[in-house]
Computed example of a mutant assay.
Amino acid sequence: MSDLNLIRNLSTLVSLRDSEVEKLQAAQAAKEATAERYRKNLERLHSLATNSGASGNLPIALAANCGNYKQAVLAMADNHRLDLTMHEADMAVSQRVLNAAYVKREVLGQVLEKKQAVVTSAKNVQERKQHDDLATQLWLRSQK
């Protein structure tokens, strides 16, 4: 009975580890989607800065306004780039945590499989012994 309890407990632990891995995978996917949004936003900001036109051909007030606009867009892009770098660092940490959780789950899964194999083997041995005992009894009865 102890082996069955151990197998049931190991199965529960494997299920919990599966849930943890799935949760971490979902979080990692969400972080990847956020990083992709950062990248697309950076492309848009770069496009806004380059497509605003040359400010040298404009009157002084408009040229200053256009220059300020470009500076603001470039500053925003720099801040966005920094945020993306920080986010990618966070993603790397999350990926390590996900890898560790996956390894833990695999180890528990292997322990569970080995224990199940041991229990199955023990049951098979016991079954064979019963069959042998029955066959011996049948043979002995037929000899009388």
Results as ranks from 00 to 15, higher is better:
V93F: 05
R128E: 14
E88Q: 14
Q95R: 09
K123W: 07
R105D: 09
T85F: 12
N79K: 12
A92F: 01
T85W: 04
R105W: 09
S121G: 07
R96F: 04
E113A: 02
K104W: 04
V111R: 14
R105Y: 08
A100H: 02
R96T: 08
K115P: 00
V103I: 10
E127Q: 13
R128S: 15
H87E: 04
V93P: 02
V118M: 14
Q110N: 15
K123C: 08
N99D: 06
N79H: 14
E113T: 02
Y102F: 05
M91C: 09
A122D: 10
A122I: 01
A101T: 01
H87N: 11
M91Q: 14
K129T: 14
V125Y: 03
Q110E: 15
K104C: 02
H87A: 05
E127P: 09
S94H: 09
L84W: 01
L98E: 04
L112H: 01
N99K: 13
N124T: 10
E113I: 01
T120H: 14
K129Q: 12
Q110K: 14
Q110Y: 03
N79I: 04
T120M: 10
E113F: 02
Q126S: 15
A101H: 01
E127R: 14
Y102H: 13
K129N: 12
E106M: 07
H87P: 02
A122Q: 12
Q95S: 10
L84Y: 02
R128T: 13
V93Y: 06
M86W: 05
K104H: 11
Q126K: 15
A122N: 06
A117P: 06
K115D: 00
